[in-house]
């Protein structure tokens, strides 16, 4: 909303999130390199998807300010994402 001050995150929080995002990426890399996980897709897939989802939520929620902005924006983004996921699921089941 132009012209209004939002209670956005502080600079310190942005840096903390940067550290967490890098750490998660490092964990992803380590999981990929690990023979234990590489040979066990049932463990690897949900773990990597979960880590990726955490990064996704952190960037969207705080860096893109969805957490602080009017909920209509989050709904619109969620609609786009949801529809894309639905199309993917249908195609995946059909193929």
């Amino acid at each position: 909303m132009a012209g209004k001050n939002h209670a956005h995150a502080t600079v310190g929080l942005y840096w903390k999130f940067a550290g967490i995002l890098c750490f998660i990426t490092f964990i992803e890399w380590a999981v990929f390199k690990s023979d234990t996980f590489r040979s066990n897709a049932k463990m690897m897939v949900p773990l990597l998807l979960g880590l990726s989802a955490i990064k996704f939520v952190m960037v969207c929620g705080w860096y893109m300010h969805l957490r602080y902005d009017p909920s209509v924006l989050a709904k619109m983004f969620g609609f786009g994402l949801g529809l894309a996921a639905l199309v993917y699921t249908i195609m995946h089941l059909a193929l």
Partner: peptide, 15 residues
């Protein structure tokens, strides 16, 4: 709105 529509673009390309 553009970002929501881009979800379709990248969703299709990933698929």
């Amino acid at each position: 709105v553009l970002i929501a529509s881009e979800c379709f673009l990248f969703g299709g390309l990933i698929l």
